[in-house]
Nucleic acid binder design. Sequence first.
DNA 1: TTGTAAGCGTTATCAT
DNA 2: ATGATAACGCTTACAA
Lengths: 350, 350
Amino acid sequence: MQLGNGDGNITTIYEVAELAGVSVATASRALNNTGYVSKEARSRVLEAARRLNYHINVNARSLTSGKTYTIALVLPDVTNPFFPAVARGVEDAASRKGYSVILCNTDGSPRKEADYLNMLRSRRVDGIVFTTSELPGARISSIIGDSSAVVLVDRDLDEPYDIVKTDNVKGGFLATSHLISLGHTRIAVISGPLSLTTGMERLQGYRDALGQAGIPFDESLVVEGDFRQEGGRAAMERLIEQCRGRPSAKLSAVFACNDLMAVGALTALEEHEIAVPSEVAIVGYDDIALASVTRPRLSTVAQPKYEMGVLAAEMLLRRMANPNLPRQQEVLQPMLVIRDSTLERRSRCG
Amino acid sequence: MQLGNGDGNITTIYEVAELAGVSVATASRALNNTGYVSKEARSRVLEAARRLNYHINVNARSLTSGKTYTIALVLPDVTNPFFPAVARGVEDAASRKGYSVILCNTDGSPRKEADYLNMLRSRRVDGIVFTTSELPGARISSIIGDSSAVVLVDRDLDEPYDIVKTDNVKGGFLATSHLISLGHTRIAVISGPLSLTTGMERLQGYRDALGQAGIPFDESLVVEGDFRQEGGRAAMERLIEQCRGRPSAKLSAVFACNDLMAVGALTALEEHEIAVPSEVAIVGYDDIALASVTRPRLSTVAQPKYEMGVLAAEMLLRRMANPNLPRQQEVLQPMLVIRDSTLERRSRCG
DNA sequence: TTGTAAGCGTTATCAT
DNA sequence: ATGATAACGCTTACAA
């Protein structure tokens, strides 16, 4: 009867060695397929390990090896629909190589970010996939030093860390050009936080598209959002308001710099009984699951979220394997996804 | 100038002790506020630690303490909209108490579940929050033994593990009763996998509601789904099909046992130009973010996902602190959220 | 091929 | 109040 020793008593390599009638050194070699071990010894060790339901203590091992086989994923909030796919990508790629991933939600608070980094250093994680928010790059490196490798995802920093991102300028350009190609000229933007490169870059793409089409940039058409649904609603509200008061401020389309804000904007538009896309067209950014179930379904700029996660983890492993590699940077391409929220232009104020 | 020693050289307690001019024992006591240490010694140690940017090696500590201050969250897929909130709850509650959480995605594969459990045992995690799928309870305990505490979330098992769940029978009852109260009598169900207690229980709630209302249970109105969007679409397709062929099979409402399937069903209904809720009413389960942006917005049974996560982690910590506690079980209440996808009955076949 | 023993960074015991 | 020192579980020279 094979019970597999379910009693849970933690066995050490000493007990395995003893049962196998060899020294711990030999047991270790056998268990790790390292150095010389006779076939007989090896099989006796393996059998003993099986009988005792031996599970190596990786913490103990990390003490000698200096490696923990653990990485961390530090992001603002898994609950933000952008991140689960990234997280899944990271975890898949990491576990494929035998690494575990510790999840940390910072809410974008520099304080929490710093706390987590300190904790991670104490844990001697081998690497960190980091979507930071406000923590200055210098601060990051002052905390983790070179105790672990780090790869930035969807962020850009002065510090020489590896980066995985998508081309946000291009994405902003794609979204805006799409609107322009539909005949829109009065295009508002609900931007992300301008303190974030993602926020800035997408806005830059918007300006580039305008410029290329010869449409003058109108400051009053941009309102800074916060990448959150409620923020999007509020921003759209502002836009509608200002449009009411000042017909010169009318708009026929809006580019919301992420889908969450686009959904919020949609809500505001609906409340004011402004038809989308016939009166106001709208395009979002990210292509989260929500985007394809709203009514109208949201046109958006898709980011390869899962791939970003996978790439980030792989890049991190590479960096860990070779700390002297030159700085790596991977810029993925965003992709325009046209659905129902954008349509040929028909002028109308908000 | 305070640099905080960003050089990243890992410092040990020996170096701290040396700089402070004390023994490691004293340094350890000072650092941990344990045992007797003179004020002077303590402050010298603390200062030394600061100067050297000392970060304790928790892996080394766990070697002596036997505790890793790490728990794991094992679930099918973070990418499933039900889980991020749970994950966030677990992480918040855990980190509040100084625990880190390792994330594991199993895709509901017994093989992956077993692999992860073995890995987690090797890591000596103090506890596991587990949303298992098919792994028999006995198998779980044979792998982890009592090497870590475990709390089941949203699952029920024969093994005597602690549990955090919501009352699924009640939830199914709520959803169905709501439909019945609207005058529906031909109510189809798109159930979850019947191998899962969640699947079974919600279906039971459906039957209970029918029974209480004196509506005969009609086997042909239940089709087993898989909790996924595409599965929901396919199931609805089947229902429509069968309804076409056999007028006696007509239905005026459907209870989809989770929102993802409800959204899929919505899609199918839309493709067939069947109006929701006027021709067919539909109610989902979970109240994920998607539910409030579909058109029509989805009526659903909400589960307190975040709270489930928090509770699970807290329960786990309690269990870890006291392995001899009697089995704990927390059953939260689901809540009916009425939106636009349900409406007074008007008969119509699918 | 195998075993002894040192060492990894901490904590805890036991003297002092 | 403080300091040696053993112990935690493992790997790895170095010997044998």
